[in-house]
Simulated assay, not measured.
Amino acid sequence: MGNGILTLKKGEGRSLKAGGPWIYDNEVASIVGTFEDGDIVEVHDFDGYPLGRGFINRKSKLIVRMMTRNKDAQVDEAFIRMRVKNAWEYRKKVVDTGSCRVIFGEADFLPGIVVDKFSDVLVVQSLALGIDRFKGLIIEELKALMAEDGIRIRGVYERSDAKVREQEGMERTKGFIGDPFDTKVEIEENGVHYMVDVKEGQKTGFFLDQKYNRKAIWKLCSGARVLDCFTHTGSFALNAGLAGAAHVTGVDASELGVAQARENAALNHLEDRVDFVCADVFELLPELERKGEKFDVVILDPPAFTKSRNSIKNAVKGYREINLRAMKLIKDGGYLATCSCSHFMDYELFTQTIGQAARNVHKRLRQVEYRTQAPDHPILWAAEDSYYLKFYIFQVCDEK
């Protein structure tokens, strides 16, 4: 496990001392001892005061991911099993565990690893060197804990194919962990059935974080004409259909996404009321406006328009544009559900951007509710990255 000590520069480590989970390479004064990248090291303040222990990786700008604030804690198998057990016990209390995120990295004090459960399949995404060594143990412990609750996991698939692995000096990888199995998995959420492709779908195959936000639109959609933009595999559109919408149009730029969405509509016997179009939302919305189309409900669930601080300006433009266009398509007194999944587009900036869009098109917004991600994606205060999803529902009224 190594025997190293990392000491911070004087005045550094402010985020860490406020409860943050990371140390950056430019905060470090010295590293001594014998260890390899991926080992646990002790972290000391500039004056030698112990701050805890974490995984080190000198290849990464994010040089230490903290595992514990207890300087005497041994980060061994028993410690990892305890963290995994805590994560599973928490899910059983706060969400429907039929399909859910079981481990959410730093927010579960297991930095760099995500595990999603889709019915009887687990999908793991390991993005940090230190935790990667414990990947097998984490999966084994989860399977054992679920078996105690009568849940048999039939297969595990790895989706560690994200680019950030390269920043850790690791190769991207994907494939079966253990025996091969059918990677198309049927799940049920809010009474809606989906086929999830854990091998080829985006990220781990399906976005579980919007589970209860999708349920929140039900009451607005009964008898309504609905437009669902960036529908991916049809999740909001199908919730609207099942909630009794008169007609739903889902739009996505991905042919694969649209094909899966149509398959999901058939699975729920909604083909007569829910249809899908493969198109660029930025091009389609002005076209619908020119045709004089109007909707009772418009849903905007775009991908993250920014994944770094450098591109925030362009992201703001993108969010303003789609919200502005959507508001113009909503009947007076209709509803807008709009969200951002980029943590760089924080609550204040997102709120301000929607307000600008409304002023630009002379609409008045009445806030129905504000929501974030489902509680199986817990927000750890002091870990900024863990709070990323902002979700608003507004009534959109013409200025009179």
Rank of each mutant, 00 (worst) to 15 (best):
V274P: 08
T306H: 12
D252I: 07
Y319T: 03
V297K: 04
A304E: 09
P303S: 06
A265R: 06
V274I: 09
I217D: 05
A315I: 10
R290A: 13
N239L: 03
Q260F: 14
A259L: 13
I312E: 13
D275M: 13
I299T: 03
K294A: 14
L242H: 08
L256T: 13
N239A: 08
A265T: 07
A304M: 08
A315N: 09
E263S: 12
G241I: 03
D301W: 05
K317S: 14
F230V: 01
D301C: 07
P286D: 02
A279C: 12
Y319I: 07
R309S: 13
A261V: 02
L256H: 12
R325P: 00
A266S: 12
G244W: 10
H232S: 15
P303T: 05
D280P: 11
S308W: 03
H247S: 15
R214F: 08
H232M: 09
A261M: 04
P302L: 00
H247A: 15
T233D: 04
A240H: 02
A326Y: 03
K219N: 11
D332A: 01
T249W: 00
N314C: 00
N239V: 01
V298S: 02
D280M: 10
N323M: 05
L285P: 02
D275T: 14
F230M: 04
E293L: 05
R325L: 13
I299W: 01
R325D: 11
V226C: 00
I322D: 03
I312A: 09
L284I: 10
V258W: 04
G333H: 01
K294Q: 15
P302C: 02
S311C: 05
K307E: 10
R290G: 01
K328E: 11
N310S: 14
V298P: 00
G292H: 12
A253R: 15
E287K: 12
A304Y: 06
